[in-house]
């Protein structure tokens, strides 16, 4: 899920919307406690957006 989101972000900027949708999806998942869901959602968002962030940093310097 992280890989597909990161690649989608790298293909088109609109792929960023998948990150927010993914975070909501993970946070609403049943059967897991809130802390675990929060950590997973945060890790998912961080790793998905990392390539885009690196690109932004590289092109703005």
């Amino acid at each position: 899920m992280i890989l597909s989101t990161a690649l989608a972000c790298l293909t088109r900027y609109v792929g960023v919307t998948l990150v927010s949708a993914g975070v909501v999806t993970i946070m609403l998942a049943s059967g897991v406690n809130f802390k675990s869901r929060f950590i997973r959602a945060f890790a998912y968002a961080a790793f998905s957006l990392a390539p885009l962030g690196l690109w932004g940093r590289a092109t703005t310097d």
Binding site: M1, S4, L7, A8, V14, G22, T25
Partner: peptide, 12 residues
């Protein structure tokens, strides 16, 4: 982009 979104949906 479309196949990547479908892949994302499949995992999500």
């Amino acid at each position: 982009f479309i196949p990547l979104v479908l892949l994302y949906l499949l995992f999500a």
